[in-house]
Nucleic acid binder design. Structure first.
Length: 1066
RNA sequence: GGGCCGAUAGCUCAGUUAGGUUGAGCGCUCGGCUGAUAACCGGGAGGUCCGCGGUUCAAAUCCGUGUCGGCCCA
């Protein structure tokens, strides 16, 4: 592309995005960019693998966009960055999708279909989904190593999990045995607590009497799961609570019930008893050891009945709620299980993996547990043990995939005993840096501290097989179990001949393999891993460890990971647990934890409920760069992001300003043949505004660097946008228009071009990590064949002290606030900026402001269109004014205490003729009725004018605009009115900038015509007029001016004739 | 039920570490410019700082409490 080639009139994100995609492909931009940094310092980033189900949602889009922004930034900063994307492709969610697809209802269907075929179907499904995600991510402009993603289903990766598990086993952090787990009865597998989703459902709510066997009466318990009563083993109470024996009576009966004292009324009401009397009080501790009869003793003859069962025990999970006595079934609930282990009680679970009662459940055998509730309640009623039966709406856990209500049962599972290394994990966490920092200390550390052992086994098909082989009739002794750490070891030890390079190690393959050692044949345990274990090994799996060792030795642990806050329970935790268990270290050093993408109204997005914003729709409507800019302009440090279409549109319009500034610049540089390599900043004499914008550029780069260092890409982007929109577009470009307009190649013009070029070239590079498409387009147009093939090969621009001048920046900041006030004052005076004013008076209150005005008087005069700038230093003030004051509360407050507020108001309202403390004291006394003693520190005096002169405050003073008319002003003003109309016509005629014309001016008012002719020079220069003369064959238009003195309308007719010769050269 | 995070202009967010009269962008509105022109620029109006209570001369800011939203855990 040739330098300064014309760009489209309008910023069209879609057009440039598809153009740049093709361009990047054509020049191998990504590959070149990576090669460019090869051999530099390495940066090890690990991509948290998205799950391969469905297409990318807004949360994933935000996540990947953040990653892309930081990776591009790091690469431009010189690092050789690892950027291998990953995909989490195993697990129950994919199994259930495939089951749905095949029309399966439960595990039996899978067995009939064949495990091997089912696994193939899962693999095909996961790969299909992966393709969709890859192309989504690419369309978001994300640059990662798409040719070479890590996939959790590749044997090389699966081996990383085997290796880690074997390490943990060697460190004696693996255990096997019965535990209370959450079971999905449809999927027939244990599911992790974090896979349980809560939904409000209606369940039975029953109060049941358990008759005491060593004394009169019954204890009362409450439960929402009648089906757990067959497994009742003990009842828990709170030792420190007070329980009471209550005599309850109704028409025919009178009986004694034991409940916690605060629960009596509720139980009496529920039982429908007419009267009650409290007979005795007991400390909770007195109840321990009481015995009762199992409430379903007849229906369930084989109920838990070992030593110590059907007794009352203290337990810390008891809440004073309902009855204060808690039915405990260690075969179901995890807390009950744990307490029963402590108490050495029998643990009985009469429920199978499919949720139906086993023979130990007696009469209920074969029924699905929830279906048996009704019969159990009826049986209790029949025996007179039911106090009350009702229903309750509450949150109940459901399977995350198939939405079936989960049940708690005790089954044999494999664990990594993370609870044994809690301290080590906490120590490892302390060594990591989190952004935001509080997330680590408040949220993550708490979670780590509380986390129980990690159940890593699942009774399913589509995941990494647990690499454990055990002898027939294994007794549970871990010493006789064989754990395999990789494929090479597998090939060496199994009885069958396999090739470690090609063997697939999914369940269907490894289940066939046996290991015979010392005459004993071992077979593999049937379970597969929890899918969370897959991604927990990503930090070495992504480096192909253990099959390749070099990269692991050099890079591990990860320098950075970037994920959302829901990963505290997920990937942040699982990686820490696995790293700690296998290697004793955290696998990451820095964590950037962002929030969730919410709906515009603040609701959570939910695909299943069809509450979502689809990134594809956003891209289609606004384009990728505006979407990226929007996403990146939000803080990535913990907070959620409310998606906003208006926000994306806003970014679109900012990028449009970017586009227009480049178009404006190149529109002059091109015809002038400006050559940036021949004319550099060192070759020209810079004007004050050139020096200023160059300094602003340095300050901006410095701020952006600081923000990136702190993982505040939002502030970096907002700083950059503010610089470009406010400093470059709104100020610098406005200031240099007059310098680049003349046809002549002036030194001033060259200086402006050299400056502008520097600013533009560095700015596109600064934008590159945020909005790669528009940055690339503008870079290519700007540099043509002289630059890199892609802007992403540039070094990220660094501040250059040589151009930094903070004093000048301060001056201009003050001048701009004076200009702003001046504009305001002009509005009051009713004089538009096109008309010059005789004088502007700046009443400066600070020495800093005085210095700025003294030094930048010319600039101010030009910007304010004033013939003269009059400066009043802090000692002097503008006559014809009254004065007011602003209170300084930091002094007023401590001095006057509770009166300070009233005095402040009085001061703020005061209007006095002299700027003295005495005058203000009088005014304040007048208002509040009591005398006060003020000092100068308490107040800041300001002026107020009531004359026709316009005035307005700025940060450090007041600006007055004197709009008195003079003939000189009239002449210039009317001439500019003509210029405006003439140039309007040039625009209508679509004349080129350099096109010269002849102009005929017809004004009906002779006085005004006289004024215009006085300043013909202005018209000639600003309309590129060669001659002002009668024109017979031009384009004519008529206008209405206003007579500034009378307000009367004045007729103006202009005729323009473009010169033919000029046309030809254009 | 518990932990963490959040609530400030019509919208999106700063300001809370360190108490001292609440800011920006967008939108709205009025205007300017008319050589970036379906662009660009300026002025203005918009606030119970979620409610209640407390500490303090003074609270958006500190403390307590409630409500609503998000994440996590039960």
């Amino acid at each position: 592309m040739s330098r300064f080639a014309a760009i489209d009139d309008r910023y069209d994100p879609h057009a440039i995005e598809s153009e740049m995609m093709d361009y990047w492909d054509a020049v191998d931009a990504y590959e070149q960019t990576k090669a460019h940094r090869e051999g530099n310092e390495r940066f090890f980033f690990v991509d948290g693998p998205p799950y391969t189900s469905g297409s990318a949602h807004m949360g994933t889009t935000w996540n990947k966009t953040l990653k892309d922004c930081y990776l591009r930034y790091l690469r431009m900063s010189g690092y050789d960055v690892t950027d291998r994307p990953g995909y989490d492709m195993h697990g129950l969610p994919i199994e259930t999708r495939v089951e749905e697809r095949l029309g399966f209802e439960n595990k039996k269907d899978i067995k009939e279909f064949g495990e091997e075929r089912f696994i193939e179907e899962c693999k095909a499904y996961a790969n299909e989904q992966l393709e969709g995600l890859q192309s989504d991510f690419q369309s978001f402009g994300v640059w990662m190593d798409w040719e070479n993603p890590y996939k959790s289903v590749d044997p090389t990766y699966m081996e990383a999990a085997w290796w880690a598990f074997a390490q943990a086993f060697e460190r004696e952090l693996v255990d096997q045995g019965g535990r209370s787990i959450s079971q999905c009865p449809r999927c027939e597998t244990a599911i992790a607590k974090n896979e349980v989703e809560y939904e409000v459902v209606s369940d039975p709510s029953i109060y049941v009497k358990f008759p005491l066997t060593d004394r009169e009466g019954s204890i009362v318990i409450w439960t929402t799961t009648p089906w757990t009563l067959p497994a009742n083993t003990f009842v828990a109470i709170d030792e420190s609570a007070t329980y009471q024996a209550v005599r309850v009576e109704s028409q025919s009966t009178s009986e004694l019930l034991y409940v916690e004292e605060h629960c009596i009324e509720d139980v009496v009401e529920k039982g429908g008893y007419d009267e009650y009397t409290v007979e005795t009080s007991f400390d909770g501790s007195e109840l321990v050891g009481w015995t009762y009869e199992h409430p379903l003793a007849q229906a369930v003859p084989d109920h838990p009945s070992g030593a110590g069962t059907q007794q009352l025990y203290d337990a810390d999970y008891v809440e004073i709620d309902r009855t204060g006595l808690v039915h405990s079934a260690p075969g179901h609930g995890p807390e009950d299980f744990q307490r029963a282990q402590e108490l050495d009680l029998d643990i009985v679970c009469p429920v199978g993996p499919d949720g139906s009662f086993t023979e130990r459940a007696g009469r209920y055998e074969g029924q699905f547990v929830k279906d048996a509730d009704e019969e159990i309640i009826a049986d209790l009623d029949e025996k007179g043990l039911l106090v009350n039966a009702d229903t309750v709406s509450h949150d109940y856990g459901h399977c995350w995939r198939c939405d079936t209500g989960i049940i708690q049962i005790v089954t044999d599972q494999w664990f990594i005993t993370t609870s044994a290394i809690t301290d080590e994990m906490l120590e490892n966490v302390a060594g990591t840096d989190w952004y935001p920092e509080e997330a680590r200390d408040n949220r993550f550390a708490d979670f780590v501290d509380d986390s129980p052992d990690w159940n890593v086994s699942r009774q399913r098909y589509w995941d990494i097989p647990i690499p454990i082989w055990t002898p027939a009739d294994w007794d549970g002794d871990l010493d006789s179990a064989i754990v395999i750490g990789d494929r090479t070891e597998l090939a060496q030890r199994v009885d069958q001949a396999i090739d470690p390079e090609t063997v697939d190690i999914h369940k269907d393959t490894v289940d066939e393999l046996t290991i015979t050692e010392d005459g004993v044949t071992h077979t593999r345990v049937a379970d597969v891993f929890d899918v969370w274990l897959d991604s927990s090994v990503a930090s070495w799996g992504t480096l192909n460890y253990p099959s390749e060792e070099d990269e692991f030795d050099e890079l591990w642990p990860a320098d950075l990971i970037i994920e959302a806050h829901d990963q505290t329970r997920g990937w942040f935790w699982s990686q820490l647990a696995m790293g700690s268990a296998a290697v004793g270290e955290a696998p990451y050093e820095r964590v950037l934890m962002h929030g969730h993408a919410l709906m515009p109204d603040g609701r959570a997005m939910s695909k299943s409920k069809d509450i979502l914003v689809d990134p594809h729709d956003v891209i289609e409507e606004y384009g990728t760069d505006p979407m990226r800019a929007f996403l990146l302009s939000y803080t990535a440090r913990g907070d959620n992001m409310k998606f906003s279409f208006d926000g994306v549109a806003e970014m679109n319009s900012r990028l449009n300003i970017l586009w227009n500034v480049y178009r404006f610049s190149m529109g002059y540089m091109r015809p002038d043949g400006f050559d940036p390599s021949a004319v550099t900043l060192d070759d020209v004499e810079l004007a004050i505004e050139d020096e200023w914008i160059l300094s602003r550029l340095q300050s901006t780069k410095r701020a952006i660097d600081d923000h990136f260092e702190a993982f505040e890409q939002d502030k970096a982007l907002n700083t950059l946008l503010a610089f470009f929109v406010e400093d470059v577009s709104r100020y610098y470009v406005q200031l240099i228009r007059d310098r680049v307009w003349p046809v002549e190649q002036t030194d001033s013009k060259q200086a402006a071009y050299a400056t502008l070029y520097t600013v533009l070239e560095e700015t596109v590079a600064l934008f590159a990590p945020f909005t790669p498409f528009v940055a690339e387009t503008l870079y290519q147009h700007l540099t043509g064949d002289t630059g890199y093939d892609t802007v992403h090969m540039c070094d990220y621009p660094e501040p250059d002290e040589r151009w930094l001048d903070t004093e000048l920046e301060g001056d201009i900041a003050i001048c701009r606030s004076i200009e702003e006030a001046g504009a305001n004052a002009r509005e009051q005076a009713g004089r538009s900026l096109r008309w010059p004013v005789d004088r502007v008076v700046v009443d400066a209150e600070s020495d800093r402001a005085v210095r700025a005005v003294e030094r930048r008087r010319d600039l101010l005069a030009e910007r304010l269109n004033a013939y003269e700038i009059e400066l009043l230093d802090p000692d002097r003030s503008f006559e014809e004014l009254t004065f007011a004051a602003t209170a300084d509360m930091s002094i007023l407050g401590p001095t006057f205490g509770e009166d300070a507020g009233r005095i402040m108001n009085a001061l703020n309202n005061a209007n006095v003729a002299e700027p003295t403390v005495e005058a203000l004291e009088a005014a304040v006394e007048d208002e509040i009725g009591t005398p006060v003693e003020l000092t100068e520190e308490m107040i800041e005096i300001e002026t107020r004018t009531e004359t026709t002169i316009g005035s307005a405050d700025f940060d450090a003073g007041i600006v007055y605009v004197d709009s008195t008319l003079t003939d000189e002003i009239r002449a210039e003003g009317y001439a500019k009115e003509v210029v405006r109309r003439a140039n309007n016509m040039r625009g209508d005629l679509e004349l080129q900038n350099t096109q010269e014309v002849r102009l005929d001016i017809q004004l009906e008012d002779e006085t005004i015509a006289e004024y215009v002719s006085e300043r013909e020079d202005i018209v000639r220069e600003q309309v590129r007029v060669t001659a002002i003369e009668p024109v017979s064959d031009g384009h004519t238009d008529s206008w209405e001016l206003t007579n500034v003195d009378t307000g009367e309308p004045v007729e103006l007719e202009l005729t323009i004739d473009p010169l033919v010769a000029q046309k030809a050269t254009e």
